[in-house]
Amino acid sequence: MSLKKASIIIILILLIDQISKIYIKTHFQLAETVEVFTWFKIHFIENDGMAWGTKLSDFFTFISDKSAKLFLTLFRIVAVTGIGFWLVDVTKKKKSKILVFAIAIIFAGALGNILDSVFYGVLFSGSNMQIATFLPEGGGYAEVFHGKVVDMLYFPIWSGVLPEWLPVIGGKYVSFFDPVFNVADVAISTGIGILIVFNKKAFKDSSKTETPYSELHNNQA
């Protein structure tokens, strides 16, 4: 797969991701929910940290939330830059299409969430008890690099008490699936999943070709 095709995939994912986030941000209040199906809801939350809202300051108590957020955003920028160089490298070396596609969608997802972290704080007002406005007169809800990632996809597929006969977890209340995520998260998870499931195909060296039998026979003659 060429870099041009990979770029088109990246742009498409970014457009879907950002359009969905901007729509939610400008039409929903924080924690507002719309039920699409019983197993799928649009539920607006904002993630100030890593996966499932975890913050670096939760692990390193000597770091303030503001400093932890800045460090996390800068780390994400460095990481996505590295992924970008990796993508360019594999396309130049004409690696497998599976590998290029996986890296491209991981890059798109990571970049999509970085845009939230870097710019959303200055572009939008807060969403708590109100619908946010774009480019508010009094300024945004946070400084640059301190924005929150917009999440909205929620799949509460099943919840209930597990049978008592199950070892360890029997009798406990379980809810599946609790995390709320976005299109960018889907892209990252899908890309990583492809690299894990199709590991051998993704990382095979397509530049190496077997010597045809006829050519081998002629050389021996």
Rank of each mutant, 00 (worst) to 15 (best):
F145Y: 04
L216V: 01
L162M: 15
T81I: 15
G170K: 10
V118C: 11
T133F: 00
S96C: 09
D48Q: 10
I16Y: 08
I13P: 01
D65C: 00
V161H: 05
L123P: 07
T54R: 10
F85K: 09
T81H: 01
N199S: 11
E137L: 10
F60H: 00
I45D: 00
G84V: 11
G112M: 08
V150H: 02
A132S: 15
I106A: 11
D116S: 07
N47R: 05
D48E: 12
D48A: 12
L72D: 01
G140S: 03
P136L: 09
F203S: 05
L166C: 08
T26S: 09
H27Q: 12
K204Y: 04
T190V: 15
T190K: 00
K204V: 09
F203R: 03
F28G: 00
G121L: 06
G84S: 10
F101S: 12
S64E: 07
G191Q: 10
V186H: 01
D89A: 12
G139T: 12
S117Y: 07
T38K: 15
D17P: 05
T73F: 04
V180Q: 00
F124T: 12
F28P: 02
S214L: 06
V161M: 10
L99V: 14
W165L: 06
G112W: 13
F71E: 01
V122S: 13
W158G: 02
D89E: 14
V90I: 15
P163G: 09
V100F: 07
T61L: 07
I103R: 02
K66S: 14
F198A: 07
I11W: 08
T209E: 11
S117T: 13
E215S: 10
A184G: 03
D48V: 04
T209C: 00
I11P: 03
P212L: 12
Y213K: 11
I22M: 05
F75H: 00
V80S: 02
F85Q: 05
I19F: 15
G140P: 09
K25L: 06
I196A: 10
L99H: 13
G170N: 03
F203W: 08
A221M: 07
F62M: 04
I24W: 07
D89T: 13
I11R: 03
G191R: 10
L123Y: 12
V183W: 08
T33G: 03
P163E: 09
W86A: 14
